[in-house]
Write a protein that binds this DNA or RNA. Structure first.
Lengths: 240, 240
DNA sequence: AAGTGGTCTAGACCACTGA
DNA sequence: CAGTGGTCTAGACCACTTC
């Protein structure tokens, strides 16, 4: 038995990409050229290209052609989460910014009540959704639930600046964060926001932040483009 | 302007899946049924289903049908990386095991020389590749480079047991680990090993482990199925 | 206007599953 | 055997980019 045609073609192209025959930014042969080169139908060529898109190797552009993707990742350090996000990024030579999408009070959903240790009942929390941009392009979308009195008091600042520095500056020191990191697929809505193919890989950073007396003050999730962000962490034995 | 047909169909099915019309494990209507239900061609139906596959929502099975995927993730704690992997998993009610694929001495590649602080030159290190299984199915593939004298001495144990416990038991205490977590796509080879669709999301855990005197002893990468594994971590401010 | 990728059709053959 | 998904063909129309 042998591989289906579309796989043969996409594997051959993949090799040529990783061996540098097609450099990042370079244009692949057009569908028409590939059809005659491999003597297959257009659908098969398109399937092969779609394999490469799914592997994040290539980006098609309507009316222009298919181009090899530039791979450039930026690292976000979990071990110094209180450093300004902007500074962290600046050290890596990129410009970062945030864009507030939503900031409003909502009734707390059950998971949030539990995470923030609110008595169950009709609690309010502030919901903030924001985009994180690097060099002007959106790389992550964050959704945070904040204790009501903090959200109310610092609304203006929270809308325009990163969350942790704002709290820190106002005497709310974050002492501990519990977090998980996992992977998901971009659904249609997220894929539009982050300009990523439908189903593309996202890193999900779920966090709860605590002050010195173990009081949770906020929790949230950050969905970031898997092709643009890396998280780093240092673990020492005595820290548990 | 409006959405293309294949997206309309896949979004409609996605809603039905997340609203529970199709429970996990349930079978979707066949391609033939969907063709007449939406009055479109087979290619369009297949494209819609392919959208769902790319989002990890659904798994097609040849000769049987398309089924809604069961979502069950297992959490690996980075904050207690020295605990037996098996114990960590057992606490979550699953059975884990490892399967040695490769164990041999190789010339150290440059990145490894740097990570393990070897003098540049013709160094040897031990390369171990192993599969991590949960409930009998492969969920991750790990590739580790180990200092030569350690690999040589503990070869037998390393082949059948988890790395850190073996070292610990033999007096090599791991005191610190630096790590990064990122996302990639499964290439063809990995997709076969882990039984994942081509291009599916993988979590990549890159690590270097140090003993008490800051001496690196091993480094490696673990590629794990994004749909089966989560990493958790606790960060405290003083650990800087 | 010519060239590119995006969507869609109708129809064919194959491989696998299960009764 | 009938039903399922997997692969592939030939051909059509559209939307966008570039000249």
């Amino acid at each position: 038995m042998q591989l289906p045609l579309h796989l043969l073609i996409s594997e051959k192209l993949r090799e040529q990409i990783s061996s540098g025959v097609f450099q990042p930014g370079a244009q692949l042969p057009s569908e028409h050229q590939l059809m005659s080169e491999f003597a297959v139908s257009r659908i098969t060529v398109r399937r092969a290209i779609s394999n490469l898109v799914n592997q994040g190797l290539v980006v098609p552009q309507r009316g222009k052609g298919v181009f090899v993707k530039e791979q450039r990742k930026v690292t976000y350090s979990l071990s110094s989460p209180l450093v300004f996000f902007e500074e962290d990024m600046a050290r890596q030579g990129v410009v970062s910014s945030i864009e507030n999408l939503i900031f409003k009070a909502i009734p707390a959903p059950p998971e949030t009540e539990q995470a923030l240790r609110l008595d169950s009942g009709q609690n309010e929390v502030y919901l903030q959704k924001k985009l994180l941009l690097i060099d002007g392009v959106p790389v992550a979308i964050d959704s945070t639930h904040i204790l009501p009195h903090l959200g109310r008091t610092f609304a203006a600042e929270l809308k325009s600046q990163m969350t942790f520095p704002v709290l820190e500056k106002n005497g709310v020191a974050i002492e501990q964060i519990t977090a998980t990191l996992e992977c998901t697929h971009a659904d249609y809505e997220t894929s539009e926001f982050l300009n990523v193919p439908l189903g593309g890989p996202l890193l999900v950073y779920c966090y709860t932040a605590y002050t010195h007396d173990d009081q949770p003050v906020l929790c949230g999730r950050c969905f970031s483009r898997g092709d643009r962000l890396t998280y780093s962490v240092v673990l020492t034995k005595r820290s548990r």
